[in-house]
Design a protein around this nucleic acid. Sequence first.
DNA 1: AGTGCGACCCGAACGC
DNA 2: TGCGTTCGGGTCGCAC
Length: 273
Amino acid sequence: MPELPEVETVKETLKRQILNNRIVGVKVHYAKTIEFPSVEEFKKQIINQTFIDIKRRGKWLMFELNDYYLLSHLRMEGKYNIKDIGDELDKHEHVVFTLDNNKELRYKDVRKFGKMHLILKDDIYNRLPLKALGLEPNDKELTVKYLKDKYKNKSLPIKTVLLDQQIIVGIGNIYADEILFLSSINPLKQSKKLTKKELQLIIDNTKIVLEKAIKAGGTTIRSYTSSEGVHGKFQHELLVHGKEGKPCPKCNDTIVKIKVGGRGTYYCRKCQK
DNA sequence: AGTGCGACCCGAACGC
DNA sequence: TGCGTTCGGGTCGCAC
């Protein structure tokens, strides 16, 4: 699943492939991928824009163009591939950008959950979806005080709240389990009941887990690869996620799987009380 | 405001 | 073997 580390990998890969190329054509084969503006406006506005840079904010890819940012959220299975003009269209390729070098940048998404926005550069941080995002894991403002304040009215389980992109961005279901295991915190513990010590552990381990995952190129489970032929390696370093019935790496007790906020959650009952 | 849950999708995994 | 059913993943919108 593309979470922050996967998006980082895609960003770096695409930077080597499309920077300084101009968009000379665009085809939208699945209209709902384009969330804003209308498909017609989207096509009209993006034509003749050049890829100047690619950035990332949370799980959003930010393609910097001359006048706009093209925001792209891959959700679970979105990927980008470079193909030649004329290559047969894959059934799951929903948006195709034709470039001025006879190549095409194609957005492929089996689940069709991914979304794109095209927003004027001046507005980008004052508008949804970026406006609502919380702190990056490596932001200096991510402190115990910050989390204490954000969590004070939350009786939801910490596992659920770690997935809330309005507080910290980039944590998905896999990494939330890993962060809580390393912090020895029960995923069901109410967020507002966390001690300062526990909040500090969450902050430290969030940074550690995401950084390690970025270095490994993300996590490839199920069918996900960041782009054709690119596989992350972090799945080999997972300690609890997906390890139901396997021994805990710390205490050898059996890892269990439960549902928290509707999400599959793996943890060690002995280490995470 | 906080919380809970269905909807969005469809391939893979599962059950019979 | 084949076929029907369930699951999962991130986010949003809606009801309470």
